[in-house]
Design a protein around this nucleic acid. Structure first.
Lengths: 379, 379
DNA sequence: ATGAAAGCGCTAACAA
DNA sequence: TTGTTAGCGCTTTCAT
């Protein structure tokens, strides 16, 4: 049922013709195929081969023969050797707090896609928002001689980004900003305001907040925007109506649970992250309160599952952000001037939006009628 | 508001003492710090420095001085140069279908954690289950001279894995198996059987299946196991009660919707993936059927959100799988014999489990009583 | 334990 | 266009 690669077929000495299209694994005469191997076969100098392979389309006679030969022999350029010589690795490092956060994964997919188009490769590392790991992983990236860094895990506390800045390697921030370093972020404050205004428009006066990570500019500004917008409309959110969460459903659920215990008269919740919001939806259902009927829930990001769950949320264009950050990094690498970017959020109203159930200031009873789920949250 | 790294402080010529702990950015005399830089300062030969730095704890007098100096100067070994010389990159390549699938992200986090402990670095690539991209990304890995490959995106169609096997690079499969290559997978067939038996135990006779990706051994065997277990209990699942999905909530929701249209008398659904199952939960609610009351839903994987959503599911130990695959790859790299592993699934019964609502073969009416969500699905 | 010397595979002057 | 030469930074024999 299993087998080691050591038993891989293809003896190393046969120079037989290819079985099908593509390079033939067993063609090489001894070691791996290098420029020299090809040069010898073609009767030219290695540097000629190097040049011929560079311009992948050049029309010269010998160049064509060389490229043919390279393909036949299954030549693969040695990135380490090239990097050593050119002082450019063709790799960019991406630091995220963790890829199991789908927002970070989306960001990385976009970055990877964009760097690939530009002929680079992306190397990603999870830092779990831990300062030690952040430093360790950046060091590792430097050891790999990446040409630049994209940090998606910046902390408001500037010590991390300031340290990176002293390393003298091109870098940009994405998703979270810190200090005055070049960054591509959402206008999170505005996004928070959209959520807050939306809830105020609906008439909510008792709003809770699941506030996410205090060290993240995204979390913090989203909350600040929401609180400000509510305050301007005469709605104050007391401190004990705010719960910290870690951007996943289980802490969102727990936070909502605690919030309901302390303030059972809550009629609306804003979560700085969709998964926290989903957790809130779950906790509300467990408490017999129907989201979108008894209690309004607004999330943030518009991750894929949010649409399916009919969650009202603030959309953040993560793929655009990743692509823009990549291009910005290229500008920094090439010494061009860059300006930080702030993308615009968009409010997406779905089924978890609703007005407060009763105009009375008393704690509302859990609604006793059967719900038509078509008009409320479904996840 | 923004600034280029070119303006980074620290003039290149000052040899001043450190501001605080750690390497001093501005210490180097001109270019980057290499072994030679340190050697000159220490008055020894570069090879001596290389040796001293290798044994990070060696007690020699000069060795200690050298290590001190290296730290002071902020020396970072050049991985490319070392790799070129030693023919080992210290990197392993990981190919996943996509990191926005949280299962793949969990797998990668575990792999990254394990390789880091072993002194390696992990480089991940999304292939989107596309044969072209798979080949392209593997080629890129070879160019980077990774020491081995972990493929989480194998297809049942062996052409991809067979091609990789001919490349003569150590590799193992994880999560999905194909051919007889070394792999670490769940016993997906057994997992499917657990789900099927569970539904049969509950008395379900009209079961639908959200079957996932046909090219994935995991998806296929989960469905096969479920169908077999049901059949042995006298329950047949007709072909038109099976819907293909792509492992996310939106296709799960659509699949469930179509299934309900064709077979409104369905009393239970098995989804080969939790997100498909969540999509089914959503579609059921939209159709006015309460999951865990009117219709039973069983997912697969036990991703974090499944617990919060109170979803019955089959647990797959992805972190264990990633770690085991990494260790297996190391064995292959070092030429040791390896045996494929199959881990054991575990049924996790939660609130979306329920018996069929009525014993009558007629399509049941949407339940008209208010639900106590405490006993049913909450997400 | 240290020094000397060679070379991994590639590219970029420079010369022809 | 092609060949020559040199060297990126490191490790590893071999000799001392």
């Amino acid at each position: 049922m299993s087998r080691s690669e050591r038993e891989t077929p293809g003896s190393p000495e046969n120079g037989a013709a290819g079985t099908a299209a593509g390079p033939v694994a067993g063609f090489r005469t001894g070691g791996p195929v290098t420029l020299r191997t090809i040069a010898e076969r073609a009767g030219v100098h290695p540097s000629t081969v190097s040049r011929a392979l560079k311009r992948s389309a050049g029309g010269d006679e010998t160049a064509r023969r060389i490229r043919e030969l390279a393909a036949e022999l299954g030549y693969r350029p040695d990135a380490a050797a090239a990097s050593l010589r050119t002082r450019r690795s063709g790799a960019v490092g991406v630091l995220v707090h963790r890829l199991t956060d789908v927002v970070q994964a989306i960001l990385f997919e976009a970055i990877e896609h964009t760097v690939l188009e530009l002929g680079y490769q992306a190397i990603v590392a999870n830092t779990y928002d831990d300062p030690d790991q952040q430093r360790r992983r950046v060091e590792l990236m430097l050891t790999r001689r990446v040409d630049g860094l994209i940090l998606a895990d910046a902390h408001l506390d500037r010590s991390y980004v300031d340290w990176v800045a002293e390393l003298d390697i091109p870098f940009v921030l994405v998703n979270r900003h810190a200090g005055d370093y070049p960054s591509v972020t959402l206008d999170d404050y505005l996004g928070g305001r959209l959520a807050g205004s939306h809830l105020a428009d609906l008439g909510h006066a008792r709003v809770g907040v699941l506030r996410g990570l205090p060290h993240s500019s995204a979390s913090s500004e989203r909350m600040a925007g929401c609180l400000d917008a509510l305050r301007e409309r005469g709605v104050d959110v007391p401190e004990d109506a705010v719960e910290a969460t870690t951007l996943d459903a289980s802490t969102g659920r727990e936070g909502m649970r605690r919030l309901l215990e302390r303030r059972p008269d809550t009629t609306a919740v804003f979560a700085v992250n969709d998964f926290d919001a989903l957790g809130a939806v779950i906790a509300l259902r467990e408490a017999g309160r129907e989201p979108g009927v008894d209690v309004a829930v607004v999330g943030f990001n518009d991750v894929p599952v949010a649409e399916a769950a009919q969650l009202t949320t603030v959309r953040s264009p993560h793929a655009t952000m990743g692509a823009a950050a990549t291009r910005m990094l290229m500008d920094v690498i090439e010494g061009r001037h860059v300006e930080s970017m702030r993308l615009s959020p968009e409010l997406i109203v779905r089924a978890t939006s609703c007005p407060p159930p009763t105009p009375s200031p008393n704690p509302p009873q859990p609604s006793a009628q059967p719900h038509d789920h078509r008009g409320s949250a479904v996840l």
